[in-house]
Amino acid sequence: MDFMERLRDKINTIPQLPLECKMGYLGLDESLVVYPLPGSRIVQEYMDGSKDWHMNYEIAMKSQKQSEIHETLWTIQTELEGLSELYSQNSSFQFDGLMVTNKPYINQLNNQGWYVFLLDIQASITIFKEEK
């Protein structure tokens, strides 16, 4: 299922982001990432094996420039709130919608001056049963 890859690709099409979004966790330096969160759940299951899911993801940014993080995550949030289409490249899912569950918020400030801000979303998607 390639949903997270398509979400990352969509984020990377947003003009003038200061960093490329990657999948995984924050690095040691400035970074912008997307990763899954716990709590995803099946909403409905169909006879053909397809399942409707509510899937939780987090977008995190780390930088020493608090205002840049704030602006970047609010830009991403605005773009994702208006997202109506997202297509699988391998036909493994159908995108049904996306909801921002937490607006960008500060999560951490360490003694080296690195800020970490988070943005939480929930995607509604149908995952098709894999053909064997």
Rank of each mutant, 00 (worst) to 15 (best):
W53C: 01
K103T: 14
Y46D: 13
L80M: 14
R8E: 12
Y46S: 09
I106R: 12
C21G: 02
I106A: 10
L83F: 07
E20H: 10
L98Q: 02
D2E: 04
D96R: 14
Q89A: 12
L26H: 01
E20Y: 08
S67Y: 08
S40Y: 00
I125M: 04
P104Q: 10
V33M: 06
E45I: 14
G49E: 14
G82Q: 08
S91A: 15
P36L: 07
N111T: 15
Q66G: 00
H70R: 11
R41K: 11
D52H: 09
Q16A: 15
M99D: 14
S50L: 05
I121F: 02
Q112N: 15
I127K: 08
N90G: 04
V43C: 05
Q44I: 09
S31M: 08
A123T: 13
Y35A: 14
G27F: 04
S40R: 00
E131G: 06
W114N: 13
Q77E: 11
I127E: 13
T126Q: 11
N56F: 03
I125D: 01
E131Y: 04
F95T: 09
K22C: 03
S31L: 06
Q94D: 11
M1K: 11
K65V: 11
W74M: 12
S67F: 11
Q44Y: 09
H70I: 08
Q64C: 04
Y46M: 15
L26E: 03
E71L: 08
W74D: 07
Q77V: 00
D120R: 06
D2H: 00
M1Q: 13
W74E: 12
K22P: 02
L119F: 05
S31E: 07
I59L: 03
V116N: 05
F95G: 09
I14Q: 01
K132A: 14
M4K: 13
K51I: 14
L118S: 11
F95Q: 09
G39C: 12
K129Q: 15
I76T: 03
M4T: 15
L73A: 00
I127A: 06
R8F: 02
Y25K: 10
E20L: 12
N107M: 09
P18H: 07
